[in-house]
Design a protein around this nucleic acid. Structure first.
Lengths: 191, 191
DNA sequence: GTTAGCATGTAAGGAGTTACATGATTTT
DNA sequence: AAAATCATGTAACTCCTTACATGCTAAC
């Protein structure tokens, strides 16, 4: 899955914000998080960590709190630079924020941004998907010929999935708007 | 989207089976087909076509049928070798057939295989997704701590989407099984 | 006449996978 | 005792994207 740009970097910064971690665990969490696609490999993660170390975004934690130091495992935590970089990335609005993979990561750490940014990103994502639907519908109208059973079914299922995600986003947008206090009112119970 | 292996190759072979085409159009059709993710670039398509030419899977069509030869545009068609390679690829069962991207391509050209293969692929895909659901559910039970609103919502939406796809696959499997004659009986009209 | 779309390519580079290499610890 | 899992890395390679390079044709 062409995770473009520094998706890993953002994800790592986000996770480390929830507490120090070593590479192996980071990988597991990452895979659980964006693991709906393929798994992230060590050959991908460790070099990324090295790069972040060089960039002073993260640092090794020497004083292990745990009583049983099983074995030299390197625990990382974010630096101040890492924190500000994380917030900078999370504040980005624009295509980078709502492209397929990136969106999930942003969303996962939405708590670290304020509502204004959240709304911009959610709306950006929604119109992105809407554009796709329009484009498909338009091009489908032109090339009507396709009558293959499976091609049609695939198209139909695809459109339905995207429409579903649009509705999901709309609900989230409404929820954001409706949230004045800290927690949203439990308005719509069913579905 | 890490389109692994020769996804493009299979897609191109499949499309050219529906008639000769030149690169530019191939790309448009490809993008419409697997375009739910990112777009395929020329830098990706043309070298792939060259490679397929070298492998004798496709060949250039010299005699342009069209009356107005706008400009030297290279039309391709499948060779015999291309056809047998296509059928070989389409007959594959196993992980390669039901990995995320690959599955969509196979499904798109399902008409070119027989029911036995279709069922194996559909069932393989379904159990793959089921495994993912199980894994997430298992790991979610262990690390209950997560109470972040957005993390939870993302998880929930992800699970729901996969469950939806599992139901879709189940319907397709039933439809395949219910098909005895050449065309399926129009048993279930609604949805 | 100038913008948008058609049409084909190449070169450099990024991001990630696979396979390799190693070894400790926990579970069966 | 063996197998699984924890744990960290490196090197080679593949696939694909971005940016560059070129030029024709249709529409506005």
């Amino acid at each position: 899955m062409a995770r473009r740009g520094d998706t890993i970097e953002l994800a790592v910064l986000g996770l480390l914000h929830e507490g120090p971690m070593h590479g192996y665990e980071l990988r597991k969490r990452l895979n659980l998080m964006l693991g709906w696609g393929r798994l992230l490999s060590y050959g991908s993660l460790y070099p990324a960590l090295k790069k972040m170390l060089r960039g002073n975004l993260i640092e090794e934690v020497t004083g292990t709190v745990s009583a049983t130091p099983r074995r030299p495992r390197i625990t990382y935590q974010v630096t101040e630079r890492g924190t500000s970089e994380f917030h900078r990335l999370m504040s980005e609005v624009g295509p980078a924020a709502w492209e397929d993979d990136n969106f999930d990561i942003r969303f996962r750490f939405f708590s670290s941004t304020d509502m204004e940014i959240r709304l911009r990103v959610l709306e950006g994502r929604r119109s992105r998907l809407q554009e796709r639907l329009d484009r498909v519908q338009r091009e489908l109208a032109m090339t009507q010929k396709e009558v293959d059973r499976y091609a049609t079914e695939l198209q139909r299922h695809g459109v339905e999935s995207v429409e579903r995600e649009v509705r999901w986003l709309s609900d989230l947008i409404n929820a954001e708007r409706g949230t004045v206090g800290p927690q949203a009112a439990t308005a719509t119970d069913n579905d």
